[in-house]
Design a protein around this nucleic acid. Structure first.
Length: 812
RNA sequence: GCCGAAGUGGCGGAACUGGCAGACGCGCCGGACUCAAAAUCCGGUGGCCUUCGGGCCGUGUGGGUUCGAUUCCCACCUUCGGCACCA
């Protein structure tokens, strides 16, 4: 009997799979309707910014097991792979290496693909794509133009978050606690003309369509809901008689408008200059505005509230009273209208402000059970509250008052119901080299003109210096920039910003369905055949950014008639990260565990097994070398025990011994765990348990059958050793075999172990016939000597019988 | 502050609808093989007590429901994650 040698058997089988294109899945010739027998398993595509570490390997192992499992259940499984090769991660990695982004990226792609192949993954490489290839980004540009046509991509001067380190603007979603998501530098505020996607137009749909999702983690849904941040309220108009203008404010508490005793504008509010121009307040107010602009986001949030009076007044639309207008930076220009009504009695921030500047505080809402005379604002909001000091609305419960007040103001054209969102439009332009060029020409006469579809792709130009420098490096490619206007034929200049890499990854899952299409991004019939993705797998870090953007893209494409569904990912699974030495595994921390070393020394199968055996796949887990050795031992043991059985004559029908039953129970457990519950670690333990039993009873007539079961079940995890052993056990190829089915007859036991409890505590266990009646079970229980000792002449008050399980005798 | 998830041996963790707590692995202990060690194989392994039959305690803490609770309910503690000057 030879020794288990992964270095010999793994490359052997990988060659066979490659030669046979074992994991390629061709598209159907006539994908006219969605076939129930197909499945699309997808993991989030990697950034080719370096090599894979164990964290990545764990992620792809989930898709790996699901893919093998469903294949062997007879599904036609699409499981593609590609690379998110444009964008900051790849570009920064290239700059660090001192290489051109294209060279570095393509080298990394080749490396990662080699790693993946060495791990033996069941990937359809015929569908591989990389987002930096012109064949791909041509269609990214094409899609951008469809968004542009629909008014969903637009240009606007906006206050942006600027990362001084990466020298580019960031989307709101890429700013965490005032810092750049990628490099951690504190972001600065700038005003720039930028390209945006109108994601806010889809805020409600993005919320409502969550109902269409089959299975997403509640955590991710909550994060998206928080991010969209929908709140219902009203827009109210406050007149400024001096300027003869009405200023709109958004409030969620229109029931408190009678208590609005002052009015506050954000320092960035466009009205301020007009408001104070030529007044004695001008100098002080403009000084405050300047200071506020210089404050960092963090400072603005943490300091005590301050502001300046403008000397002007606004009219409270409910009371008709003049209330003073202030400027204060606790009011944010980005949310609502950049102006608020100050209701100090019922808002903590307004209260703090009013206290500091001695503004009047008028209580207009009271809890139902008598007014509290406590200091401070009363901010609770329940149906029990009633309005006071609110004119004709006094005495109304506050939810009713809300409606009534808005309705009344609407009649006077001073207000209307409204909804506020936290979600901002998606800022997509980046001042960096390594990205998809935006297919727009600037023309003095015609404005922003789309590049005609036939001229796509707008190729990324070669430039001498692609380092970030505050404006797009593309601007230095003068010959490329200078072009003719597609509309009037006059002089035009190309847009020099590139797209955020999240644009590239917002539709890649569609391209996989039809990756070589030269006439369109994809064929609708084929996309409708494969999608929505049945099982999407990725990290929780994409809970908002990528997953929200991809949903947005899908909705727009569905409305444009490009595809026939509204949600791209039916089921989502977020896997946990791999930690090492107590920290998240990452290159910057220098604590990555390199899969290649382990694969070279112990084989891919051991690595694959251990990554799933580590713990629950939706939770973080710690890599431990000595735990890994357990998997190496398991494979050796499997090898030895299986070959021992291979020397025995083939089994034929499995006899119904305890070992045969154990094998069938293992099949049932594995099928249930993987198929129904998406639990991928316990099946390994179940197979280990079975193997232990075989090793204890190698002469059992069912031992050979049990070994074949174990080999077959472990195949998705350790396909190389499984294939090899399967062949040595005298069978045809395993990967085309269907999943074994548990024999119901063998799962049905003739006897079972009766648990006997006294007052809920286990006292004894006896073997009982499966068809024993309740009376017989009680009789068996009471005749047990151990139970008798416990009863000790006491009276049995109650007898609980759970058929085929237990008897519980209740005594005094 | 609001929302969400989780607390089980020395460690990672199992227990799917309330019914044998600790599967499986690591580590540790003992044995076999060996001149010896490593590797490998076999056995043991929650704690305390034991006359070796067994007994008692035990799933973050305190209550509750139940014949019976790791599982359900209430309160609290701890940890992790998300959101937060959002009007």
């Amino acid at each position: 009997m030879d020794r288990y040698d992964p270095a010999a058997i793994e490359p052997k089988w990988q060659e066979v799979w490659a030669r046979e294109r074992a994991f390629s899945v061709p598209n159907p010739e006539h994908p006219s309707h969605r076939d129930e027998g197909n499945t699309y398993v997808l993991e989030m595509l990697p950034y080719p910014s370096g090599e894979l570490h164990m964290g990545h390997v764990r992620n792809y192992m989930l898709g790996e097991v699901i893919t093998h499992f469903r294949r062997r259940h007879g599904f036609n499984v699409l499981r593609p792979m590609g690379f998110d090769s444009f964008g900051l991660p790849a570009e920064n990695a290239a700059i660090q290496e001192g290489a051109h982004p294209r060279e570095a990226t393509e080298r990394n792609i080749a490396r990662i693909r080699a790693q993946m192949e060495r791990l033996g993954w069941a990937i359809d490489w015929d569908r591989m794509l990389a987002t930096h290839e012109p064949e791909y980004y041509r269609w990214t540009q094409w899609l951008f133009l469809r968004f542009f046509e629909r008014g969903l991509a637009y240009r606007k001067e906006v206050a942006v978050k600027w990362c001084p380190n990466d020298q580019t603007v960031l989307a709101n979603e890429q700013v965490i606690d005032g810092r750049c998501e990628r490099c951690g530098a504190e972001v600065e505020a700038r005003k720039l003309e930028q390209w945006l996607f109108r994601t806010t137009a889809y805020a409600d749909v993005l919320l409502d369509d969550m109902a269409l999702l089959e299975s997403w983690p509640e955590r991710v849904l909550t994060m998206q809901r928080n991010w969209i941040g929908r709140s219902e309220g009203a827009d109210l108009l406050f007149r400024i008689p001096d300027l003869d203008v009405d200023v709109e404010v958004f409030t969620t508490r229109p029931d408190t408008v009678f208590g609005a005793t002052f009015f506050v504008l954000a320092p960035e509010h466009p009205l301020i200059e007009r408001l104070v121009s030529g007044t004695p307040y001008e100098a002080e107010v403009l000084d405050y505005v300047r200071h506020a602009a210089a404050r960092s986001a963090v400072e603005r949030e943490t300091k005590t509230k301050d502001g300046v009076a403008t000397g002007r007044f606004a009219v409270n639309p409910a009371t008709g009273a003049d209330i003073p207008i202030w400027v204060a930076d606790y009011v944010l220009m980005e949310y609502g209208t950049g102006a608020i009504m100050g209701v100090p009695a019922h808002d903590e921030r307004d209260y703090e402000f009013a206290k500091r500047y001695d503004l009047p505080i008028v209580k207009v809402v009271e809890p139902a059970e008598g007014g509290s005379d406590d200091e401070g604002p009363f901010v609770a909001h329940t149906p029990n509250e009633r309005c006071v000091n609110s004119g004709e609305f006094s005495g109304l419960p506050s939810p009713e008052a809300k409606r009534a007040i808005v309705q009344s103001l609407e009649g006077k054209r001073l207000g209307r119901p409204s909804v506020g969102y936290r979600l901002r439009d998606w800022l997509l332009s980046r001042q960096r080299y390594w990205g998809c060029p935006i297919p727009i020409v600037h023309c003095e006469q015609c404005g922003f003109v789309p590049v005609p579809d036939g001229e796509l792709p707008v190729l990324l130009p070669e430039v001498e210096d692609y380092l970030p420098k505050g404006r797009s490096p593309l601007a230095t490619a003068e010959e490329w920039v200078r072009t003719t206007c597609p509309s009037c034929g006059g002089e035009g200049r190309r847009e020099t910003d590139t797209m955020d890499t999240f644009v590239d990854s917002s539709w890649y899952f569609l391209r996989y369905a039809d990756p070589h299409n030269d006439n369109a991004p994809f064929d609708r019939a084929i996309v409708d055949y494969w999608l929505p993705v049945n099982q999407y797998i990725g990290g929780i870090e994409h809970a908002i950014l990528h997953l929200l953007y991809a949903r947005f893209f899908t909705k727009v494409m569905q409305e444009a008639g490009l595809l026939g569904f509204r949600e791209p990912f039916a089921r989502l699974f977020t896997q946990g990260m791999v930690h090492y030495r107590g920290a998240k595994m990452s290159k910057s921390r220098g604590n990555v565990v390199d899969p290649d070393e382990y694969v070279a020394r112990y084989g891919a199968d051991a690595v694959r097994l251990y990554l799933l055996f580590l713990g629950p796949v939706d939770q973080d887990a710690e890599w431990q070398d000595n735990g890994f050795e357990g998997m190496v031992r398991f494979l050796h043991r499997l090898w030895r025990v299986a070959l021992e059985q291979a020397e025995r004559p083939p089994g034929g029908d499995a006899p119904s011994t305890a070992l045969a039953r154990k094998a069938h129970e293992t099949i049932a457990k594995v099928t249930d765990d993987v198929g129904r519950r998406f639990v991928l670690n316990t099946p390994i333990a179940a197979v280990m348990e079975l193997l232990n039993e075989i090793a204890r009873a190698p002469d059992d007539p069912a031992a050979r059958f049990a070994v074949e079961t174990a080999v077959s079940l472990i195949q998705p995890y350790a396909p190389h050793v499984a294939e090899e052993l399967w062949q040595r056990l005298g069978h045809e190829r395993l990967w085309v075999q269907s999943w074994p089915e548990a024999d119901p007859a063998l799962l049905e036991r003739e006897t079972f172990e009766l648990v006997i409890q006294v007052n809920g505590k286990v006292r004894d266990r006896v073997e009982v016939a499966a068809d024993a009646s309740d009376e017989e079970l009680v009789a068996r229980a009471t005749e047990s000597p151990k139970v008798r000792a416990q009863l000790d002449g006491k009276e049995i008050r109650q007898t609980i019988v759970v058929p085929r399980k237990l008897v519980n005798l209740v005594v005094a």
